[in-house]
């Protein structure tokens, strides 16, 4: 397969995944903001979203203050913010457009339809009809696109690169959400009743609330939340599940010069596979997660060099 084709497939998938995770995170933050609390505390939650994507500076260039409406506008429909849902879905569609011949028509039409429908939705309108409905729509469209992709595409290299992009992005996003939220929750850990809602919200933003209940059948504790989202292999958005997926996919697409990338992926997976939550908590979740995100970034670079944009002509 052409390297450029693989590149488009990989990024189409990353952007789709990113939009979905962003929608989930914004949805939960919005819902949490409905729980009565001081304004300062609420705005801290919105600030955290900007920090999550290192967007504080870009935000400050166009908006005067951090509040729910501004952050939502910036993260949902601002075309100048390359991390907004709008921009992600556009990028996903553009990447799909570039390789539409490689996709099944259902997959292409799904990505295209998402973009066409998104363009018709104005932010003001979303706020009046209920932004929650919009987030539901984004999640639904991501599910539809993923569904038709896995339901219709041949299980060949094209699908491997789509899956690879999805897993890399998901690993990064889970680590990112966990890192920021965990940090905020731990430092502002006023032992009130709202704690349950906050940890619950974090779980929900990773589709892990019901899973938590099912697995632990007990109160929500930070240690268990971390364990679930980092170490549980059967939790589809956990770091463990993602890294295992990456190792497997790399094995099916490997080529003559990808050995180093495969090795790094294997190392990363092994570190999580054999980790204990107590050790992670002892070193510090933040340290652990930032280290993980760096490794995922390196892995992404390696994948780019080995498969997606090889510079050598030999």
């Amino acid at each position: 397969m052409l390297s450029r084709t693989a590149d488009h497939l990989y990024w189409m998938s990353r952007y789709t995944e990113r939009a979905e995770n962003l929608a989930r995170l914004l949805d939960v933050t919005y819902q949490m903001s409905l729980v009565p609390k001081p304004v300062a505390a609420e705005n801290q939650n919105w600030r955290a979203i900007l920090a999550l994507n290192s967007l504080e500076t870009a935000f400050a260039e166009s908006y005067d203050k951090v509040n729910a409406e501004n952050v939502l506008r910036f993260m949902v429909s601002d075309p100048n913010n390359l991390s907004s849902i709008h921009s992600c879905l556009r990028a996903a569609r553009e990447n799909a457009h570039a390789v539409r011949g490689t996709l099944t028509s259902e997959t292409w039409e799904s990505a295209n339809a998402t973009w066409i429908e998104l363009r018709e939705q104005k932010f003001e309108q979303l706020m009046t009809t209920g932004i929650g409905q919009f987030f539901e729509w984004v999640k639904l469209r991501a599910a539809v696109t993923r569904g038709v992709t896995f339901g219709t595409m041949l299980q060949d290299e094209a699908l491997h690169f789509i899956r690879l992009g999805g897993q890399i992005e998901r690993a990064d996003n889970t680590a990112r959400i966990l890192d920021v939220k965990y940090h905020v929750l731990r430092t502002n850990g006023d032992e009130g009743t709202s704690d349950f809602y906050r940890w619950g919200a974090l779980l929900r933003s990773l589709s892990a609330f019901e899973v938590y209940r099912k697995v632990y059948r007990d109160v929500i504790t930070p240690a268990r939340v971390a364990e679930l989202l980092i170490l549980r292999l059967d939790m589809p958005r956990s770091l463990h599940a993602c890294t295992k997926g990456i190792v497997r996919i790399l094995d099916s697409v490997k080529n003559d010069h990808s050995a180093e990338t495969e090795r790094r992926a294997g190392m990363l997976h092994a570190r999580i596979h054999y980790a204990r939550i107590d050790d992670i908590l002892k070193t510090g979740t933040h340290e652990f997660l930032t280290g993980f995100m760096d490794d995922i970034f390196e892995l992404g670079e390696g994948i780019s060099q080995d498969f997606l944009m090889p510079v050598s002509e030999g």
């Binding site: 397969m1 052409l2 693989a6 003559d256 498969f307």
Partner: peptide, 17 residues
């Protein structure tokens, strides 16, 4: 996606030229 080497045209693929 293409390059020429020794008067031969190649495409860059995930498995090499």
């Amino acid at each position: 996606d293409l390059f020429v080497k020794d008067d031969t045209v190649f495409m860059r693929t995930t498995q090499g030229p």
